[in-house]
């Protein structure tokens, strides 16, 4: 082994390894990223729903990102019932005002927070939804009131793009 320029040799090998590692990283990234949601999936990441035909007291279910979303146009009774619930009575305390900015419209993922079944509309002891799998009861704000589910049904990001259309996601 030549002792002539040990520092130069060290630097050369270190530089080669370092630059090689950069390349290795650059190669690995596309292989990982290709498993991320692709452009066509991301394009469906938001869905626009026409709700003009919904009368108060009616619920529709739409598919968003492969999951059901309940859109309910609530009656005045349902709204006041939801607003009058005390926070101490809730397993997952959430104000109805925070869940439904426009009180007439309730938009939430129709997925039971227990183990993922789809709860049934207009059923259960709290005038909301009932999940038949393990007996979770949800109220008119979609909050868990009785049963094993730990959380209220999730409210996704949504907005009214015009008076008749809700954009979810």
């Amino acid at each position: 082994m030549s002792d002539k320029k040990p520092e130069r040799r060290e630097f050369l090998f270190t530089a080669t390894y370092a630059i090689g590692a950069v390349g290795a990283g650059a190669v690995v990234w596309p292989l990982i990223d290709q498993m991320n949601p692709d452009a066509s999936v991301k394009a469906l990441a938001s869905t626009e729903v026409d709700v003009s035909s919904l009368t108060p007291g009616k619920t529709i279910t739409v598919l968003w990102r492969g999951k059901p979303v309940f859109i309910r146009r609530r009656t005045q009774d349902e709204i006041s019932e939801a607003r009058s619930v005390k926070m101490e009575d809730l397993k997952h305390p959430e104000k109805d005002e925070d869940r439904a900015k426009d009180p007439e419209w309730l938009v939430m993922l129709g997925v039971c927070t227990h183990l993922g079944c789809v709860p049934l509309n207009d059923k259960g002891d709290y005038d909301g939804w009932f999940c038949p799998c393990h007996g979770s009861h949800y109220d008119t704000s979609g909050r868990i009131r009785k049963g094993p589910a730990p959380l209220n049904m999730e409210v996704p990001k949504y907005e009214f793009v015009n008076a008749n259309t809700i954009k979810i996601g």
Binding site: P30, Q34, D38
Partner: peptide
Amino acid sequence: RDVNYGWLI
């Protein structure tokens, strides 16, 4: 067209 880096792979 759609898969991330799909064209490359």
